[in-house]
């Protein structure tokens, strides 16, 4: 029971430490601020909320660049979160690897699609 605990404990594999913890919070702050920015433009707009207003929010170049950055932050945030879920609940290493690969494919596919939508506005 006590083997592998204490000074002999093997610390590996799960990105213990500051990096993922900090990345998860910095990406979260960025997304929260972005949410506030979009909500602010929706709430303090004049007239009916329709296509022109909604598309107009995302059409300026600076907003597209910012949205792109937020999409990258979102992708990394979701990767860290989903990887934590798989690591907590899925023990067989082959199944876990398959789910990790699925998560990456799922996320990058959605990212590519969203970026395409964004850049043809």
């Amino acid at each position: 029971m006590s083997e592998g605990i204490g000074s002999k404990r093997l610390v590996t594999g799960a990105h213990y430490g500051l990096r993922d913890w900090m990345a998860q919070r910095l990406t979260a702050v960025l997304m929260a601020l972005f949410t506030a920015l979009v909500l602010f433009q929706l709430i303090f707009s004049r007239g009916e909320i329709g296509y022109d207003l909604w598309a107009g929010i995302f059409s300026p170049q600076w907003m597209r660049a910012l949205t792109f950055t937020v999409l990258l932050a979102l992708t990394y945030h979701v990767w860290v979160g989903m990887r934590d879920i798989w690591m907590d609940y899925i023990k067989p290493v082959g199944v876990r690897l398959a789910l990790h690969i699925f998560t990456i494919v799922w996320l990058l596919s959605c990212l590519g699609w969203a970026v395409q939508v964004l850049w043809r506005l």
Binding site: Y51, W54, A55, F58, C110, A114, V117
Partner: peptide, 10 residues
């Protein structure tokens, strides 16, 4: 979600 974004904004 991306589909909603695509349809609503394109």
């Amino acid at each position: 979600i991306v589909w909603l974004f695509d349809k609503s904004v394109s």
